[in-house]
Design a protein around this nucleic acid. Structure first.
Length: 269
DNA sequence: ATGGTTGTGTGACAA
């Protein structure tokens, strides 16, 4: 029996509800994690997801910006939201899936345009967000100790040279600067996380999940970055059966600028 | 080098 997990920065769940339903129809996920839902909890369009076979919903929403959601075929419990920032933004939701595993869904701050903490408060906030999240995940009890765990989301950092279209040209571009990569690596080590995408597609093969809107033809421009990630606790690594970036969705009319990431596990839940 | 697009909610922001 397989567990199919999909994570996707939808860039407004209300603007792209038809895309989300088309995605569910195409991929039949057991669990769908969304980021940038851009809606407060009370206005979340839950009914279409219930009708599409994902009736268990955990939300951390806010009006207009950010926000994350977990939509599941399997029962969810122990919903928790942690703010590792300082502005009360909705960037994390965590659930226990059917009592068998702990799932964290994150939308890490993008960090603005200028990669300098003195000039750009948003960049400082992004780095601090990583520090606070790393400190939190370093505490094994908060991470449910022995329970298998999965962390997904838009982490807004492309760590490896092959995670961007040009390592050299992006070294001073926010999302690929050495200081951001270091913070991401510290967070990964703090939680003992393993990178599922690079387990399946090892570097230096290019692997991207995001392509800017600011190109007439995103495939032709060929300027992607791997901003979205799936991390697991080490015990889940032998249970990985499949991973793909579903970039077909980037070709749909009025798409999100992110493509969904699909992972199949052989877990009996 | 620069500008290029989108969503929210109706004017700038954020990305």
């Amino acid at each position: 029996m397989a567990l199919r997990l999909v994570t996707w920065n939808v860039n407004s769940v209300r603007a792209r509800i038809d895309h989300a339903l088309r995605l569910i129809d195409a991929l039949r996920p057991d669990i769908l994690c969304l980021q940038e839902i851009k809606v407060e909890d009370a206005a979340f369009p839950g009914r279409p997801f219930v009708d599409a076979g994902l009736p268990h919903i955990a939300l951390a929403g806010q009006k207009g910006y950010h926000g994350v959601a977990v939509l599941s075929r399997l029962p969810l419990a122990d919903t928790a939201r942690v703010d590792w920032g300082s502005k009360g933004e909705a960037r994390h939701v965590s659930v226990a899936v059917d009592g068998h595993l702990r799932l964290h869904n994150l939308y890490i701050p993008a960090g603005g345009d200028v990669p300098d903490v003195a000039e750009n408060p948003k960049f400082a906030e992004k780095l601090a967000y990583f520090d606070n999240a790393a400190a939190w995940f370093a505490d094994g009890l908060k991470n449910d100790g022995a329970l298998p765990a999965i962390l997904v989301g838009d982490l807004n950092v492309a760590p490896l040279p092959s995670d961007v279209w040009s390592h050299k040209q992006l070294l001073r571009v926010v999302s690929h600067t050495p200081v951001e990569v270091e913070k991401l690596e510290i967070l990964q080590a703090a939680g003992g996380w393993c990178d599922v995408m690079r387990h399946v597609v090892p570097a230096p093969a290019p692997l991207f999940t995001w392509w800017s809107y600011r190109a007439r033809d995103w495939r032709k421009a060929a300027r992607g970055r791997r901003l979205d990630h799936v991390w697991v606790s080490p015990g889940l690594i032998p249970h990985i059966r499949h991973m793909e970036v579903f970039d077909v969705a980037r070709d749909w009319p009025r798409p999100s600028d992110h493509a969904p990431v699909v992972v199949d596990f052989d877990l009996d839940l």
